[in-house]
């Protein structure tokens, strides 16, 4: 790691002010991503602002939303009765993330901001437009088995790494942010930016802004949901493909569907057309397969990750079957 100054923030305002005054400052909560990236020199902040003492760990039902503090740890959110009852898919996605130790460390806010596992992004000797804009994309034409097939651009095909962001994007979760210009709330699907020509810009956050928490609107049929993650080994691995599914079914007919795909997109992928196709459709395999086709519209393989197109469809169909059963 490069030398840096450390500051423990005593208040949210102090944290934001400290970061605002240093363009190379970063917040640290669990540390599982930022310190890892500092060790491999992808990140080299001049100042680390430790936000762990801020009172942002609460998980509670307020009105028709579940509020999750930015500093709530993944394991605590997964174990919380309100979360387990209201959105099983969120709890499952968290339980399938990383390892038990890392889930005790990692914060919800940090998880939403975790950087891609793309090998070219993580290797400072390799070209990467996300890490070093203009240097090229090593993954295109390279080792790209784990890379994205949706939302890619000629500049970047890096997969978004978060599991929990997948069900959260399906649930229209709202990110609450505080910053130098005040606070604002952003729907998660508007929070992430597609790589396009600027893959180094991953979210709409500006420097100094701090995620304070999430508000997840309670979905009436959220209890009927699941998260299915497919990977090479059984645990402790990023997804080859994943699907978050919530269904409102009455008398064999789907009234509403919420879907999202992980492990395949440059951002957590919300296939709204497939949701639309399922609305009013019978809960049958044929309908599910049709939705999966729609969900993968525009998907593009880059060689080693071609299989992800079929895998993502099958993962979504399986998740739909699991929820419908």
């Amino acid at each position: 790691m490069n030398p840096f100054r450390y500051e423990r923030a005593q208040s949210g305002a102090a944290a934001i002010a400290a970061a605002q005054h240093d363009g190379d400052a970063r917040f640290v909560a669990g540390g599982t991503n930022i310190l890892d990236l500092m060790k491999i020199h992808v990140e080299a902040p001049s100042l680390l602002v430790d936000i762990n003492r801020l009172p942002l760990s609460k998980i509670e039902l307020r009105g028709d939303s579940v509020h999750i503090g930015a500093l709530a740890r993944l394991n605590d959110v997964a174990a919380h009765p309100v979360v387990r009852q209201a959105f099983p898919m969120v709890a499952i996605a968290l339980e399938q993330s990383a390892s038990p130790q890392l889930r005790n460390m990692a914060s919800m806010g940090g998880n939403l901001l975790q950087r891609t596992r793309c090998a070219y992004f993580r290797d400072v000797a390799a070209p990467c437009n996300k890490r070093a804009p203009g240097s090229g994309c090593g993954a295109i034409g390279g080792e790209n088995r784990m890379e994205a097939i949706l939302g890619t651009s000629e500049r970047c095909i890096a997969t978004h790494a978060s599991d929990v962001a997948v069900p959260l994007v399906a649930l229209d979760a709202v990110v609450n942010v505080a910053g130098p210009q005040g606070s604002r709330s952003i729907v998660l699907s508007d929070f992430y930016r597609l790589p396009g020509a600027t893959p180094h810009l991953e979210t709409v956050l500006v420097h100094g802004e701090l995620i304070t928490g999430l508000s997840v609107p309670v979905l009436p049929f959220g209890a009927r949901s699941t998260y299915l993650k497919v990977r090479d080994r059984a645990q402790y691995e990023f997804a080859l493909g994943s699907a978050a599914v919530a269904l409102d079914i009455e008398g064999g007919t789907i009234r509403q569907a919420r879907l999202a795909l992980g492990g395949v997109g440059t951002v957590p992928w919300r296939p709204r057309a497939a949701e639309h196709d399922l609305t009013g459709a019978p809960a049958t395999r044929t309908a599910f397969e049709g939705a999966a086709e729609a969900a993968l519209t525009g998907a593009r393989g880059y060689g080693m990750n071609d299989f992800k197109i079929a895998l993502a469809k099958r993962t979504l169909v399986r998740a739909l079957e699991m929820v419908a059963a």
Partner: peptide, 24 residues
């Protein structure tokens, strides 16, 4: 208002000891 919201949104925390300003 942000600061207010932050301090009001959770349980009171005791003022932690240790470095209040940045140090290497």
């Amino acid at each position: 208002a942000v600061a207010l919201q932050l301090s009001g949104s959770g349980a009171a925390v005791s003022e932690p000891a240790g470095p209040a300003s940045a140090t290497a």
